Simulated assay, not measured.
Amino acid sequence: MVRTPLTPRERQRGERFGALLRRARGDRSMVDVAAAAGVSAETLRKIETGRAPTPTFFTVAALAAAVGVSLDELAAGCVPDTDCEEQALSA
């Protein structure tokens, strides 16, 4: 099965999600948070850097619990700033 390439908007959403997780992680090590979520540190690193922009729901839920952020907060943090996005598209 061939995976459909991600759109620029989907990649940007993944980058926003990764940055949000990174901020929520704070001073905790990537290894500690990954272990608490039951994922590998490599998976967390890829998500935080935007290289894995579409993690599974269960990975997102586990990471949210590990960093103490609700799924609603994560979802809200991944919504693009429409003013900035419209300006970028019109440029």
Rank of each mutant, 00 (worst) to 15 (best):
R13V: 06
A76S: 08
G38V: 10
T59G: 10
L6E: 10
V69S: 08
P53E: 10
V39A: 04
E42G: 15
R3S: 05
A75W: 15
E10D: 12
A66H: 07
V60H: 15
L20M: 10
T82N: 11
D27P: 00
A52Y: 14
A52F: 10
S29W: 12
A66N: 03
A41W: 12
S40M: 07
V33F: 13
R11V: 02
S29R: 13
C84I: 04
G50V: 08
G18L: 04
T56Y: 13
K46G: 15
R25S: 05
G14M: 05
S70A: 06
E86G: 04
I47Y: 02
A37R: 02
D32K: 12
D81M: 01
S40D: 06
F58G: 03
M1F: 08
T43I: 08
T4M: 12
R13W: 04
Q12P: 05
G68L: 07
T54L: 07
V33M: 08
F58I: 13
G68A: 12
G68Q: 07
R22N: 00
T43E: 09
T4I: 14
M1S: 15
L63V: 10
A19F: 04
M1W: 03
R9S: 10
P5N: 06
V67E: 00
L74R: 07
A36G: 11
V67R: 00
D83W: 01
P5S: 10
P55V: 09
A37T: 06
V39Q: 01
V2G: 08
L20I: 01
G68T: 06
A35E: 11
A76D: 00
C84S: 10
R9K: 14
T56S: 15
A41T: 13
S70Q: 00
A88Q: 09
D83T: 00
R22S: 03
V39S: 00
V39D: 03
D72N: 10
S40G: 11
L63M: 02
D81E: 00
T43L: 15
V67C: 09
A62T: 05
E48T: 07
M30E: 06
D27N: 12
L20F: 11
A34I: 03
S90T: 03
L71T: 14
V79L: 07
R13S: 12
L44H: 07
A19V: 02
L74K: 12
T43Q: 14
V2Y: 09
R9G: 15
A76G: 01
R23E: 03
D72S: 13
G77M: 01
R16M: 00
M30D: 02
Q87K: 01
R25V: 03
A41M: 12
F58N: 08
E73T: 11
R13K: 15
G14F: 03
R25D: 04
R11M: 06
L63N: 13
R28H: 10
G38I: 03
D83K: 06
Q12G: 02
D81W: 02
A19E: 01
G38W: 07
F17Y: 13
S29P: 10
V39K: 03
K46M: 15
A34N: 07
S70V: 05
A36C: 01
R28K: 15
